[in-house]
Design a protein around this nucleic acid. Structure first.
Lengths: 157, 157
DNA sequence: TCGATATGGGACTGAAACGGTCCGATATAT
DNA sequence: ATATATCGGACCGTTTCAGTCCCATATCGA
């Protein structure tokens, strides 16, 4: 799952050199075959590089601060964009009724999510202490409470 | 699916008063029972209010600009947060190895996504013309190209 | 050169979730 | 009070997804 990918990538970011899939699986307590599968996808997406053979393993393709979280997520789930209404053929109903601009707005939603995700790199995940980022004090646990404060203008970045 | 919810909510935002599920289904070309199902979830989540009986139907619970997209999405998919590693029991491995702060960082990811989604209201979806929002010219179709431009500081909202 | 080790790709299985359909309960209008 | 039209929840087929296993390939060390 995507969670696994983030965990593995984070551990990989904290590690020095290449790490075998087995070690990473142990560290993250992820079932070994599943971890391997996830790492393969990450490798195919270019997030990590693989070294086959003895003393092989996986290593981050770039420096941790150069790898955005969205890359990890997209490596697993494919493109983050979820356009459904835009099919060039079924947009007929969009015209006669309140010419809903869902298509362009979906794009905007996806873009907003992508931008939010791009703000966070693997370095931020692996070394949270070095975060010069968000000033929002994540005091407790409920992110629900946060939702009521989203009208304020504090920016993430 | 979530797309349906967004469409229905958007059409509802553009409509005046309460709309029967059947009419909304016709307008959006969504199978009627499915549309009804989606509307039920939206009603339970408090996004829309339901009026039973003859001449009943669904209406937006608040004004379109007061309803964030994330509410619609969460109404269908449940909480947007996806914390998996935080189980109070399995966080042992997080300590001995590079005390990974995945938990807090996942919260930050979720928060970032929520904030990004909160920036967009149903009013923005229903009346895209009134958008004083993004200056990004969504020229074509590929949101892929956009990803390379996310380092710029232009804000959504 | 040979063997040990570790990734890569694919096929297979089981389960959870999704889309979709149905009928019962309830409220409104006549 | 009755009829009508709606919401509400339970049910089912299908599909996707997480997870597992096997074999081919590539590299390092003896």
């Amino acid at each position: 799952m995507t969670d696994y990918a983030v965990m593995l990538a984070t551990h990989l970011a904290a590690a020095d050199g290449a790490q075998p899939a087995r070690d990473l699986a142990l560290q993250t307590q992820i079932p070994e075959p599943t971890a391997s599968k996830v790492l393969k996808k990450l490798a195919r997406a270019g997030v990590v590089i693989s070294q086959r053979g003895a003393k092989g393993g996986y290593a981050l393709a770039r420096r941790p601060e150069q790898v955005g979280i969205h890359e990890v997520i997209e490596a697993i789930e494919g493109p983050i964009a979820v356009t459904e209404c835009s099919d060039e053929s079924t947009d007929s109903f969009c015209e006669y009724e309140t010419n809903c601009g869902v298509r362009a707005n979906w794009q905007r939603i996806n873009l907003a999510v992508q931008r939010a995700l791009s703000e966070i790199s693997l370095a931020d995940m692996a070394f949270p202490g070095a975060a010069e980022l968000v000033s929002i004090a994540l005091s407790g646990k409920d992110a629900e409470r946060m939702r009521s404060a989203d009208t304020q203008g504090n920016e993430v970045h």
